[in-house]
Design a binder for these strands. Structure first.
Lengths: 143, 143
DNA sequence: ATACTAAATTGTAATGATTATAATTTAGGT
DNA sequence: ACCTAAATTATAATCATTACAATTTAGTAT
């Protein structure tokens, strides 16, 4: 019941249903903060001490390959992961490091590009300072 | 004469003018194929055997900080570098790995987002199969 | 021109994310 | 209840990047 949703996702793609994959999917579904592989690993390890880091990487790779999750290259340091939902962009705050969803899809990019190359993924991100960090600065130094 | 253009770029930002920085800038200006730090390092080392990898990283960092170059996080593996020119997006071919410039700026993203967060960088990229790889496949298997 | 000083460069070592490998276990079909 | 290919695990290796400490240099002041 609890995992049925994720079982179905894997069944659709005819890839093996394992407890590790289900846990990772559930984790990404509940944690929409674009975690790293390491964050997923350490958090899930609490309830499953035998979990291997390699398994996390392998699972993320196959889930990405079958279009169940997205990878986000934005920090330049590590890959972030995101369960697939409606297309959106990301905003990364250079101060606090947070990656925030931006519910926008870049219009007419797809059409514009259907001229030779085949697009399989669309990624957009911005970098700057998030509202919260800006507000903190104002508090600190006076407006 | 040859390096004047790059000297000016550094002067504008009041950062020190060193032969290493000038060479890196010239390299990025001539090589618009989004090289990695390692590629820059090995290519420039040919004419300057004492060049250090750390210098390349340090220089790229400061050039990026002062908005003279751009960093591109797209492969998830390493950072790519691009001399600053008009805003454009990128297309990465999943087959051959090439990163191609797409001369498009996502319209009205900037305005849409001026609601709290401050945008300092706009990045957009697509992944898929480039025209050349697609054409090769057709050649191979018949159309 | 010369001397000075903070900043840049260099080489080496350390770090941290990710991948490779090989042995063990398991999912899912027979 | 098998069987087998695929998944999981632990460990070691790899690769990009950063930290560090010693040396050199750019650019300013003398």
């Amino acid at each position: 019941m609890m995992y049925e949703k994720y079982v179905d996702l894997l069944k659709e793609k005819s890839i093996k249903i394992t407890p590790q994959r289900l846990e990772i999917l559930r984790y990404l579904d509940k944690n929409r903060n674009h975690p790293t592989a390491y964050q997923i690993y350490t958090d899930l390890k609490e309830n499953n001490p035998s979990l291997s880091k390699t398994t996390v990487y392998n699972s993320l790779e196959i889930l990405n390959k079958y279009d169940i999750i997205n990878t986000i290259s934005i920090t330049g340091l590590e890959t972030r992961y995101d369960i697939k939902n409606i297309i959106h962009h990301h905003f990364m705050c250079k101060k606090c490091g947070r990656i925030i969803d931006i519910d926008i899809e870049c219009p007419n990019i797809r059409k514009t590009l259907e001229q030779g190359h085949k697009i399989e993924e669309v990624h957009g991100y911005f970098k700057g300072r998030c509202r919260e960090c800006i507000e903190k600065e104002i508090d600190q130094y006076g407006s």
